[in-house]
Every structure is written in C-alpha cells, then in structure tokens.
Write a protein that binds this DNA or RNA. Structure first.
Lengths: 299, 299
DNA sequence: CTCCATGTTGCTTATTTTGCAACATGATAT
DNA sequence: ATATCATGTTGCAAAATAAGCAACATGGAG
C-alpha cells in the first residue's frame, strides 16, 4: 500500500466526485478510477458506491478512510521528523480577493501556518480579476478568488466554495413595486447597478444573452462592496454573492429580491500554475485546501 | 511510501546483510540496494551504514524502523479486517526433519498459528534428505530441514539456524587415546560411523577430499539419532550437529572431541519452490521466518 | 428523445522497477 | 605484497506498472 494511493483515496472521499478529485490530484479521471479500482481489488470490497449521479463511501470505505487518514498522517510525521533537508521551507505568496480574505482564507491560513511553521507566508489582497494574471506570470504562487469559467491548460483550479448570486434592491418602497415579466423581474426595464467585470458580470451577461434581453444599466461599479453601497443609495438593483452581502455592514439596508433570475452560483477557489504546483510548499497548501473543502461539504 | 518498501527495509534491518535480505525478499541485490537508496533519498538521510563488511542501522534508521514496523502492522490489520475474501485461508503443508521439529519449528508454528488462525496446518516429519524432493514435486509447500549447498533455481532457501558439527566418540578409554596427525585426529586410522547421506556426510566428504584422506568407515547409518546410538556403542567416532546432540538422551554418554577437523556448520532453514511462494499463505510463513531469524541473530 | 454529466474501458505512451553483468572496495589468505 | 573472496553498487536493457487520450456506457434533465 502506497501513501500516495491513500492520499488519492482520501481526496475522492472528501470531494465525492471523480472528476473534481482527479483534478485536485492532478490526475486524469481514468488514472483516478484505476487507482480506486486497485484499492478495491486489494481489499476485495468496494470502497465507493457510484450511482452515476453521486459518489458515496461504503461502510468499508468509511473504515478504510479512518485508516488512511492515520497512515498518511503518521507518514508525514516521521518524514518531517527524520528529514534533514526540510523542503517545506521557503516562502509562499498568496493573492486573495476581499471576499476570499473574509470567507475561507482565515481557516486555510491558520491550519497551514500551524502545519508548516517554517514557511514564510506573503498575502496580497486585491480584485479577483487580477488573480489569474498574477498567477500566470508567476508574480504569485497561489490565488484565492472567484474562478473564471474557462481557463488555460497551464493553470489549475480548485473550487472551494459556492455561494448563490443574489439580486438586491434598495429598501424603500417596501412593496415589490418592480415590473415583472414571466413572473420574474423585467431586467430590460428596471435600472441596474452592475460590476464592470468579474464573475457576477459574466454570469449576468450570459443569462441576458441567452434570453436576448437588453438590460437597463444605470451604473457600472468595481467591487462587490461598492455595488452594495450604490444599490443602497437607490441607483438600481444589483447582483452580489450572498457571502459578500452577509458580511456587509449594509446587509440590513437592502432587500433581497425573490422573483429574480437564477444565476449560476459564484465560485471561489484556489488557482495556481501547474509549474508552481511542482513545489512541495504549494502542493502542501493545495492538499490542505482539498481537505478543508471536504470537511465543509461534509457538514 | 509503499508498505512493500517498508517490508523490504525491515527485512534488511533484521538480517543486516544485503545479499541475504535480497534473497529473503525474492529480489536481486541491485533491486534491494535501489529500494533502500530511494528510501534514503526520500528522507535525505542514510538509514544504514555499510562498511563493506557489516551493515548496521543509523540512529535515524532505528527510528524509521519503529515507524515501519507500526505502519506495516497497521496495514496488515486493516487489510485482514476489511478483506472479504480472506486469502490467508486454506492449508499449508510443512515437512520437517526431526532436528527441525525440536529446534526452530515450535516457535515458528506457534506464531504462525496465532497470526493466521484460519489456516489449516499439516505437519509431516521425516529425514532431511527427502525434503527438497518433496518440495520440488509439489507434495508439500514448505520444508524445514538441513539445506543443501547448491540447489536448483526453481527453489528458494532461507537459512534460519546454524549449528556446529561436532565429532563425538564413545565415552570409554577416558584418555584421548586416538591417533593424531597434524594435531588433529587422524581420520584415516580411526574407525568412523557416518551417515549414508545428508548434509553432514557431504561436509565430511568434502573435507576429506580436499585433503585426499581415505577414511576408515566402520559403519554407515541413517539419521543423526541412530548415529549417536552407534557411537555410544563404541563403533567409532561420528559427526553430529550440536543441536541434535544437545537434545539427545545420550548426550552425556558420548565425548565431544576437541582435536577434530573443523567442518562448516550445519545449516537448517526453510525451503520452498518459487511457484509455491506466490501463494499468500506461504509468503506469510516465509516472512514470519525472516522476522524470527532476525530476532534470533539480534540476541 | 436528445443532450449532458460522469464514470469506465481499450489502447498507446511514459515512468518506474527489476535483473544481469561488470565494477569497486576492503578484508583474508598465500 | 598479491591474489582471491565477499559484498555492495552502478550502467544498461527488459519488464512491469501507471498514466493519458479517446471512445464508450449509463442514467438524468431539458
């Protein structure tokens, strides 16, 4: 039994999804499938139930999981205890959007700090849109930000957190005095405050394009926080990730619209270049993120 | 980290000898060397000190050894706990010489029994000379007996125990009234009781041939026990493994000759065919024997 | 009923591990 | 001192193992 295989098993057990797990392990789906098959063959028992829609652990799988956790942990322990040239040393630069800094970065940084005390961490915040570029040109090692829908092959992405995109409106005129169309708010008539760019803008544009609707854009802003402020002032309705709204000081001064279009959720995740992920430090951070993602979804 | 590599490491740690360890693992010496090298590279530290005469563990190696023991043991535990088709089931037939039955088989059988309760053990005793033949034609799985000096490639041997070959003489005539030559007993003149065949006979023949001595053979017997009896009766001097003599009821009725030729020690060990060692049951027994061999030498 | 998401299988390619033979090294014997 | 032996290590080719790609199942959702 190889700890690498246990690691892979653990990732799949966390994510419960072959495709995503294989990405997280930097493997092709077929390689993952086969690794699991070998494990199952070794034990003569299935570890996962695949019902072609969801993946779940069998009872045997659960037991094996607790063994795997222990085994991997113990291996890491001796290794770091006995290793002379501790390669988990050096520095790691992380770029994060404001959203990320407040939502999932705290836990992530905390546990990384605890596990790898020697690593010099450097944290930069900024707007999500820059993240990919900075990773790509090697200015930073990892980015935690809203993920683009598509990306180059040289980059790796790991979705960590989904949060719905909410339509919000100013609080006044308590009745929902907004024009409707097909039971939903008519976006061609209601004035909107939209971000200049970013994931929520792309989501909106896509939705509008599919329905050939021309929006009534009253103003374009940069940054989710700014958008909330504008909506509060009455400039129009806007779109914001629930995660951001819930942390905003204005959260009680805007109204969440129920009869709004349903957009795909806002995805925050980890991004790095494949070349960077060769570095053990980056790998360690990545692995930690995978584990935390699993814990969260397991709740 | 792969448990197989840990297993190999443990074997070398027990035997402290690359050549023998590689045999015990059914590997070529180079493969063993490289496995250890990879381990050492992984930790960035040497695990063994090779001073071209003896092999020993470094302090780091000792620490790693305790980890390896635990890891292998835990892996075996989950595996046997979760495995549905417990392949360590079935039967194992063992052939043993009388010497073996009394010397190292008890401990070996006891721990095997304890570890693999499900396995049906079948034990046959007989003369050592038959052992190899029975293994070769597949009548039995394993033999514990005196080992031949050379053997076919299809067979595997694992030396477990060395015991010196002693020259013994009848007790009467308390003075060592035997003719000498070059300070040793002159075997061309003293009557001898020798086994018809077997390891001690081969050792004797070889010794005589090297020195071009024609022995004075008074009688040939079959079996070490018979030989002791004949010597006691005064038929001549004889050769017997210390191990056998020490358990003989006649041990105080014969005299051990000091001024005797020095023969290579009598070697008792495990023998099996390579094809048989594919079976997990046989492998388990073999591995157990390796471990016990290490413990003994470690004393 | 088609399309989509998702896991699996066939086959080729890449990586890792093994074995053989030659080599290095240091001790023992002559 | 020199030959010889025992023993571990290295170069290189072969074998085994794992990975990736593309095509294929399978079961929902639109």
């Amino acid at each position: 039994m190889d700890t690498r295989h246990l690691q892979i098993f653990l990732t799949l057990a966390e994510l419960r999804h072959f495709g995503r797990a294989s990405q997280a392990c930097h493997l092709s789906p077929s390689a993952l499938t086969r690794t699991i098959q070998r494990l199952e063959e070794e034990l003569g028992q299935p570890l996962f139930l695949r019902d072609n829609r969801r993946v779940s652990l069998t009872p045997v799988g659960e037991q094996f999981r607790s063994y795997a956790r222990r085994a991997v942990q113990e291996w890491r322990a001796v290794r770091s205890a006995l290793r002379k040239t501790d390669d988990l040393t050096g520095s790691l630069s992380i770029y994060a959007s404001v959203t990320a800094v407040y939502s999932l970065l705290p836990r992530l940084l905390e546990s990384f700090r605890q596990a790898y005390r020697e690593v010099q961490l450097e944290l930069r915040t900024g707007v999500a849109e820059q993240a990919v570029g900075l990773v790509q040109n090697g200015e930073i090692d990892l980015a935690v930000a809203a993920l683009p829908d598509r990306h180059r092959a040289s980059l790796q992405f790991l979705p960590l957190l989904h949060t719905p995109l909410l339509f919000i409106a100013p609080p006044f005129g308590a009745g929902s005095g907004l024009p409707l169309r097909d039971g939903l708010i008519d976006l061609s008539r209601v004035p909107m405050v939209v971000p200049q760019q970013g994931l929520s803008r792309r989501r909106l544009d896509q939705w509008l394009k599919e329905r050939r609707i021309l929006p009534n854009i009253s103003s374009e802003v940069s940054g989710n926080e700014a958008l909330i402020a504008m909506v509060r002032l009455g400039c129009g309705i806007g779109i914001v990730p629930e995660l951001v709204l819930s942390r905003s000081p204005f959260r009680d001064e805007v109204r969440i619209l129920e009869k709004a279009p349903h957009l795909d959720p806002y995805v925050v995740g980890l991004c790095s270049s494949k070349s960077n992920l060769q570095r053990p430090v980056a790998q360690a951070f990545w692995q930690l993120a995978v584990e935390q993602a699993g814990e969260r979804s397991g709740l």
